[in-house]
Design a protein around this nucleic acid. Structure first.
Lengths: 214, 214
DNA sequence: TGTCTAGATGGCAGTAAATGCCAAGAAGGC
DNA sequence: GCCTTCTTGGCATTTACTGCCATCTAGACA
């Protein structure tokens, strides 16, 4: 049952969020202070920080829930589905789980245009990637040469790289592009053999076991 | 000619860096304050911020120079070399350009173990990716179906995803692994066709042009 | 060599995000 | 109606970071 506390909490969250996003759109993220948001939302600064742990969470706050949803979706896919397809389906579920498209587009643009937000966003998705590792690993050929952990990590990283690339193009576009199509095109560009020449990689790894943070 | 100012500046940078990395290793990144670093390095807090604009730059500061180096290396590759191979060779050059292997390993571990640093690190590399875009685009088949910009963006993002994955595994390992080998294995895991089944992607993009920041 | 200028430094005050603490108030169970 | 529990707001404090200004010094030049 839903108590009054829950309801007023929900209302407060919504009011804060609306105020914050409006101000961010009007004057930019960095130029908007927590004090101003709190004032205009009619709440104390202290309480605002209780609802949203950080300023960045005002924008990237839903990410935890979405990550959980993605994990559940991937887990739900039939066991014989390949890791690639399971992840693709998982992402597709995310698309349906969001606010209005306009809001999502607005949020994406804000994130991609604001370095500190972008960093936070990436950080949250790194968590998703770590959480997905065991699920993806379970879908791989067991006896393959590259260690399954490496293979799974590489696949997940690539899928996210393509998803991010697609999202960025979608956010920078006028909204006339389809996100799922963009994702498929990105992945196709990556998993297709080389276009002009299929040269073997130079492979000049002359025994330098330790090197830099590339 | 190298003036005395340049030299003392160089010395100060080195002293600050040594102090900072020692403290980060001893007590962790978050637990170490700028005030403490400045005190132990015998410099004012104000000057420290003049050398390194942010605390994160104490760790990720070299990235700008490395990005430039990568760009130069890729540009230098023969025009007929594929985008994949040119990028791979570029990364290989980076490996030779770093501090001592131990230092690089220490830095990498710090970055991969500290979420906020990790996010900043990736953010800086996104800049590299944007800079590489025209160079990679020039190496692509001109008449290909997916827009070349998308194709180039996806390829670059994937290459970086694999490089990061390889670096993380290398950093978490005991140093006995070869970074270049790890990179090749990651890329191989990604560009090889599906292992168990080569199912067609579900492709259930039922006309939802706009959706969330995936 | 002495002087003048540009650049480096340090101190100080200030901003903004975030956290801890505590007292006051409202909601829920009885 | 009372008491517990959760919420709220105000206050002080920490930490990263910036602007301003006085001071000092390396380097150029007469």
């Amino acid at each position: 049952m839903t108590t009054l506390w829950d309801r007023s909490r929900q209302a407060a969250v919504q009011a804060i969020l609306d105020t914050a996003l409006r101000l961010f759109a009007e004057q930019g993220y960095e130029q908007t202070t927590i004090a101003q948001i709190a004032r205009e939302a009619g709440i104390s600064q202290r309480s605002l920080f209780r609802y949203f742990g950080t300023k960045e969470d005002l924008v990237c706050g839903d990410q935890e829930a979405l990550g959980e949803l993605l994990k559940q979706s991937v887990r739900r896919q039939p066991a014989e589905m390949s890791a690639w397809d399971a992840l693709r389906t998982g992402f597709e579920v995310l698309l349906t789980a969001n606010h209005t498209p306009e809001r999502a587009l607005e949020l994406s643009r804000l994130i991609f245009d604001t370095p500190s937000l972008h960093a936070r966003y990436i950080e949250k998705r790194l968590r998703w990637q770590a959480d997905l590792l065991p699920l993806v690993q379970a879908r791989l050929d067991t006896g393959s040469r590259p260690a399954p952990a490496l293979q799974a990590k590489a696949i997940i990283a690539t899928v996210f790289a393509c998803a991010d690339t697609a999202t960025e193009l979608w956010a920078r576009g006028e909204g006339e592009l389809d996100l799922a199509d963009l994702y498929d095109q990105c992945l196709a560009a990556v998993r297709r053999p080389c276009e002009p020449n299929t040269t073997e990689p130079p492979h000049s790894s002359e025994g330098d076991p330790a090197s830099a943070a590339v």
